[in-house]
């Protein structure tokens, strides 16, 4: 689905953010990208949709080499890639609905978007997504009137409104409290599972990553130093990624959560009735 080949980014200042990053994301696969701050996580996902221009290497989305595209071609690829941001990055003075509909901008012409006359199916989809993330009664509120967790839900709805083939998620929980963080992560992973949507999720919280994703890539100073199963993250690997530290607490914490509230917090198995989870989600998330 997504293939990065020898991706390198050197900033104008000479800082080498990425060097020779190569990996493939399979359809439906959710990848957690971990690493210390400054390891190049943000740069990496922004190179995928060229919000940051990579210095060399290729990014293949399906058969298309994103790095070779013209401006128009880039716009068309970008609308296939949904993105969710750390500080939500909602347009604060627009309504929730406008924020969600802005995910459709790549599909409609300027005047249509200027007069907010989006096609009926786009509006219907936006309503459905807002219902899905539990915000159907906040449609006409301004984005800056929402709480952090609610804003991130709008951010998710905006990304999904694009009908994406890939999700890029940049530290979705960095500005949220632990409980909301888990709700948001669960929501993202659920949605990806429902529609077989592949995703790359930048996340600095190792425990959270272990809890929710099945594949983890560890980035250190712009180089991939780990790529594998969350269960294989041991003290040795974490030291390789983050440096020397006492890792026993981190690892145990992750294990505890896994075993402690298995029925509640672990990502939904296929047997778990999704609608039930969503209802719980709504009750918990909306206050």
């Amino acid at each position: 689905m997504l293939r990065l080949n020898d991706l390198t980014k050197v900033y104008a200042t000479g800082d080498r953010a990425l060097s020779g990053v190569t990996f493939t994301v399979e359809p439906g696969q959710v990848v957690g990208l971990i690493g210390p701050s400054g390891a190049g996580k943000s740069t990496l996902i922004r190179c995928v949709n060229r919000l940051i221009e990579p210095t060399s290497g290729q990014v293949f989305l399906g058969d298309i080499d994103v790095t070779k595209l013209s401006r128009r071609g880039l716009r068309q690829v970008r609308r296939r890639i949904g993105m969710i941001f750390q500080e939500y990055a909602l347009v604060e003075r627009l309504t929730v609905m406008e924020n969600v509909l802005s995910g459709r901008l790549g599909y409609v012409g300027f005047w249509r978007s200027f007069f907010r006359r989006f096609p009926p199916e786009a509006v219907e989809k936006a309503y459905r997504l807002l219902d899905r993330v539990g915000l159907s009664d906040q449609v006409d509120k301004r984005a800056d009137a929402l709480s952090g967790g609610q804003r991130q839900r709008v951010g998710i709805a905006r990304a999904l409104e694009q009908d994406p083939d890939l999700l890029l998620v940049d530290e979705p929980t960095a500005s949220l409290d632990p409980k909301t963080s888990r709700q948001i992560m669960r929501l993202i992973v659920e949605i990806c599972d429902e529609s077989g949507l592949p995703a790359i999720i930048n996340i600095h919280d190792v425990a959270l990553a272990q809890q929710f994703v099945r594949r983890i890539i560890g980035l250190q100073a712009g180089v991939v130093v780990f790529d594998g199963n969350p269960a294989d993250l041991d003290a040795e690997v974490l030291t390789r990624i983050y440096g020397e530290e006492d890792w026993s607490a981190t690892i145990r914490k992750a294990d505890d959560e896994e075993s402690g509230d298995a029925g509640d917090d672990v990502l939904p198995k296929t047997s778990d009735p999704v609608s039930e989870v969503i209802d719980r989600e709504r009750l918990a998330g909306l206050t």
Partner: peptide, 8 residues
């Protein structure tokens, strides 16, 4: 779901 929306 409704198919139209206009800005308040």
């Amino acid at each position: 779901f409704a198919q139209t929306w206009s800005r308040p």
